[in-house]
Amino acid sequence: MIRLGRWVSDHAIMAIGAVVLAYMFVPIVIVVLMSFNRPASRSAYTLDAFTLDNWLHPCEPEGLCSSLVTSMQIGLLATFASTVLGTLMAFALVRHSFRGRAATNVVIFLPMASPEVVMGASLLALFVSVGFGGVLGFWTILVAHIMFCLSFVVVTVRARLQGMDSRLEQAAMDLYATEAQAFWRVTFPLVFPGILSAALLAFALSFDDFIITNFNSGQTTTFPMFVWGAAQRDVPMQINVVGTAMFALAVVAVLSGEMLRRRRERVQ
């Protein structure tokens, strides 16, 4: 009887979990379907007929591809800058003791606890007050993206550093490695997965950000802003092509990373 109860509870909780996961994929299925959809009219956002046109002509809607390029450029630059700055900060926080550490931690925590609309609004207030109201665009977006990615990079890299056994470094130094050698041969390879996931997170955050970007963009249009603009008029099916492609790319990247990890584990 107890066994039966246990079997039911084991499988019931998994079944609920599977249902929740399925729910999370409902809109994804719609996005994929819509990417192959030929709508009845330009303004109708409904499933109608099958077509490959959207995939063959992804750049047809005016401004879509240029907004994608802008998002890519900002995403890559923001990822690079925030990953470098954030990794340095993480090292300082974990490996050094200094006065003001607690204050620094609060400053790093605050952007993650602030609603995006407040951060976007406050940056705009700053840019306007120093007379940058007229030059809002690519660079102001980039400044904002580096700002909100930074905290997430610090937290991710810091977690990795804290979980690392520092005796490995000490062992390397005991074996006559210089400080630089110990860092590049031991510390950095061990921390690298953390830096990599921080960079991926930063890119995902930057690429998908709408709220903060919207405040500080001026005339520049990123991909989320293109979608927003389109949603006020009629939505081109091609945005679903972009959504589907990004989803597929990310899944392939994650799965191949996982496979690589498994293979490496088997070799060791």
Binding site: I28, A204, V242, M246, F247, A250
Partner: peptide
């Protein structure tokens, strides 16, 4: 995974 499809989309 669903997060890689844009929030707005």
């Amino acid at each position: 995974a669903p997060f890689f499809t844009s929030f707005l989309v």
